[in-house]
Nucleic acid binder design. Structure first.
Lengths: 124, 124
DNA sequence: TGACAACAGGCAGATATCTTCCTAATATTC
DNA sequence: GAATATTAGGAAGATATCTGCCTGTTGTCA
């Protein structure tokens, strides 16, 4: 979709918001699957049926410097008998970008002056 | 299906055979997924679409003492960026049981004197 | 204004293991 | 021989991450 530079997409905004939510609740580090669950709960429906989309967005945010990540201790994952997680946290730049995106949502999604632009896409 | 004690089921025979095959080829330790692939290649079709069946059989074989297993180093799995594997190997008892099952297949599958008993089940 | 290039988003599937639920087949018991 | 107990096998899904393909939208340039 070729975006305007320095713009956050709805999905990316959702991710950052979730991340900050987690931080507020005292757990600043989160993994992709957790976000997926959170967003599923939030938006009710079967958003993000395929998780590829989410992980791609996480990658983008990391490349943009809005997220940082490291792998959890593989021993811990093994102990708990599950695949290992990549733990993300929102950076200062990420918080700033989110504030910016919320302040000026028109800049992030200018065209199409219809209320519902696309049905069923992560509502900011 | 409540089996006669000391009997090997077709699927279990297949697993043990695969395991010994691997050993012959110089890799005595194998994991569930590998067996699944091997058997898929062998029997062509979509046998074991759900892997649950296979893992249950592996568990049974282990409980019977025909297989032993240990977890691979979680660090290795992490390095290679994949879920960790449980590595099995066929025990002496397992080999013996296999030989026995092949020697006397009638004992393992007596009833129903029809050629094809059940269509599409692991052909020994 | 129209065409093109870039890329987000969804689908499908690979990598591994394991659990729960249901059905159907078999061995044992009476 | 019939009823009962047991359990194998299949389907589906949880847990996590990531890749490839294809489609459709969108920003930009001519």
């Amino acid at each position: 979709m070729r975006r305007k530079k320095g713009t956050l997409l709805p999905l990316e905004v959702s991710i950052l918001q979730c991340g900050i939510d987690f931080a507020t609740r005292g757990a600043p580090r989160f993994h992709g699957f957790l976000i997926a669950k959170e967003m599923k709960d939030r938006d009710g429906a079967k958003l993000l049926t395929a998780h590829g989309t989410l992980y791609k967005a996480l990658d983008r945010l990391q490349k943009s410097g809005f997220l940082e990540s490291d792998w959890e201790d593989p021993l811990l994952a093994a102990q708990q008998g599950r695949p290992r997680r990549r733990l993300y946290h929102v950076t200062a730049a990420g918080e700033a970008a989110l504030v910016e995106a919320i302040k000026a949502p028109q800049q992030a999604a200018p065209a199409t002056p219809i209320q519902e632009r696309r049905p069923g896409i992560a509502s900011v």
